[in-house]
Design a protein around this nucleic acid. Structure first.
Lengths: 350, 350
DNA sequence: CACCCACCATGAATCGATTCACCCCGTTCA
DNA sequence: TGAACGGGGTGAATCGATTCATGGTGGGTG
């Protein structure tokens, strides 16, 4: 029964299409399509017959063809700043779960904080006609997103608020987070802090610093009580460098707040190498509460961000925007609250 | 015919296609296509005219349409076991760089060691008609890949050798790595080791253990000198649990070799919590040399795997397989060598 | 008996880009 | 002068699935 209609597929056997299924099942292609997409329109008998042919031939429908017709794909893109940061891995997990529940695929990409990579990826997404984009922009000007807007590709900002409300956004209140961290250190008796920040043009870095300043002010301490060290990047090795600079300060700081956990781990390492004990001689607080923060030899006090929830929410908001009629959509700015997780690296001294 | 030139697109302005460009530029669609794909076939004058229209209208070609025609997409998929493991992030980086250099996109997905997730993703890839797949299989039986083979989708195994040589593979010699680690500990004077492994059906876990056994034998030590503790998963929290069990052993072990760095960090944490000093009272060696290994408070001795190179090689081999004529392709099994990186966690005691 | 409806299935139009056979026209060469 | 040539361009066929207007059939109703 194999060389069904004719033997012409014997040579390459290339790819079985909907036509092959239709021929084998003795129905029209339209009917096969209905079996797949609206089974209730097809009689029981035809349906089972077609379906058995489908599985016998191993038919797999072509996404490109249906996309072409439908106009948009079933993929949402997620563009993050740093795949090496477990924080973004969590965001990706949340987004992925939500999207897949809705039958969409997620394409995770890494701009590595480079504006040019970002632009390249965004145009790739446009060519793919992705359903939408979840993005933590690298470009501080925000102009890299203009293309999306022109192409009418919906997008949701992740871990950033939309300045002009031109899109939905999900973010965490970084000022509150900075305040939590600094307040904790102040309450432990420290009267001056070092803030290990990163590139100034990152809103996260700025806001967390602003929060720390606010906490100082609330405690009646002067702004000069905050010393800032700027790391080149937000990763561990930059943290080590920052740690070295930190140790050069006189008098030696007793409390350090880092813009993220990668930096904090680097600082911790430098401090350890100098045989300074944590938290007795120096308290350290990080940000993000990545898994490795708890796993550090001196578990790191950190400001937890609801990363998974952020990813999930972002995906849900995107799907809300794409499914409902585009006109009736109101952009929303969701701001989540961070939470302090106290661990060994900042326990009250003495 | 149509109200062709009319303003009927004024309402939605939907999406500018190649036809719009052709009309505006006063040429045929075929010519526009040539301008984009084979510019040398078009006269200078026409080319610049068309190109200016393209940028004026903001035309972006539809990948689905060209895919449909071409039969295969310009995307390769990468399916890893655990996005939370920085090792795989590095693999992804390597693969991504290589693929993008060849003008291909990479879709990174995470099976989270679940066979069902893996199967689901693989069928998603088949629908997308991806150019090829790079995969570290979760399914120990390897049957989840049968679908790919049936669909004639080329794939390359990553961090695993292909048992039946049905595909290319890039892996690291895990036996050699295990031997390196154990030999190092033995040379430091330890006469018995604990191996903290993971799920037994993972070849990586088995091979590293085998390597350790080989090292013991070479040193004239009995196989009983190796005690094994099996963690549930290969992550930090499983490492903590394993660490607790480790501390329950009597006499207390002096040397521990972990199947990967996540486990080692967990063990390290448990050991620290018990106020046992590393490496003086207990030496620890991990595997993978992830960035956080060096950043641990007691920097972790680890077996470095060329993760980035592995990703790059895998992508290159895949592209080699897809570009050349399929018939002339010989599957290759590339095995890279690991390297021991000695740090504080295993320095010779006393 | 004529009419209408419900139910199934059909087949052609469509999505947007690529590709290829073919045409036009000016040059060159025998 | 006519043939051969070739650069530059055209337009229709094509990829595979979806969708919708249309057709056919059988049953129920006025």
């Amino acid at each position: 029964m194999e060389p069904a209609g004719s033997g012409r597929n014997g040579a390459v056997e290339s790819m079985v299409g909907i036509k092959d299924v239709a021929r084998q099942a003795g129905v029209s292609v339209g009917t096969v399509s209905n079996v797949i997409n609206r089974p209730d329109l097809v009689s029981e008998e035809t349906r089972t017959r077609v379906q058995s042919v489908i599985s016998k031939l191993g038919y797999i429908r072509s996404e490109s063809a249906r996309q072409l017709r439908a106009g948009a794909s079933r993929i949402v893109a997620l563009l993050v700043l740093d795949m090496g940061n477990p924080f973004f891995v969590d965001v990706a997990k949340g987004a992925e779960r939500a999207a897949r529940q809705a039958g969409l695929g997620v394409m995770v990409c890494n701009s590595a904080q480079s504006t040019s990579e970002e632009v390249e990826y965004l145009s790739l997404f446009a060519e793919q006609r992705v359903r939408g984009v979840l993005v933590t922009p690298a470009d501080p000007t925000g102009h890299s997103l203009d293309g999306l807007r022109r192409q009418r590709i919906p997008y949701v900002l992740v871990d950033r608020v939309s300045a002009d409300a031109a899109a939905c956004s999900v973010s965490v209140d970084d000022v509150a987070g900075g305040r939590l961290a600094a307040h904790h250190l102040i309450a432990a008796g420290h009267t001056s802090l070092v803030y290990v920040g990163g590139p100034r043009d990152l809103p996260q870095v700025r806001d967390r610093r602003a929060g720390a300043l606010a906490a100082l002010e609330e405690a009646g301490l002067p702004a000069e009580a905050l010393t800032e060290i700027s790391a080149e990047r937000l990763d561990v090795s930059a943290g080590r460098d920052a740690g070295a600079r930190l140790l050069g300060l006189a008098p030696r700081p007793t409390a350090v707040f880092c813009a993220n956990d990668l930096l904090a781990l680097g600082v911790l390492q430098a401090v350890f190498a100098a045989r300074i004990s944590v938290p007795e001689q120096m308290a350290i607080v990080g940000y993000d509460d990545i898994e490795f923060a708890a796993a550090a030899a001196v578990p790191l006090t950190s400001v937890r961000q609801p990363a998974v929830a952020m990813g999930r929410l972002a995906a849900e908001m995107l799907m809300e925007e794409t499914s409902g009629d585009a006109e009736g959509h109101e952009h929303r700015q969701v701001v989540l609250q961070p939470e302090l997780v106290v661990r060994g690296s900042s326990l009250t001294p003495h």
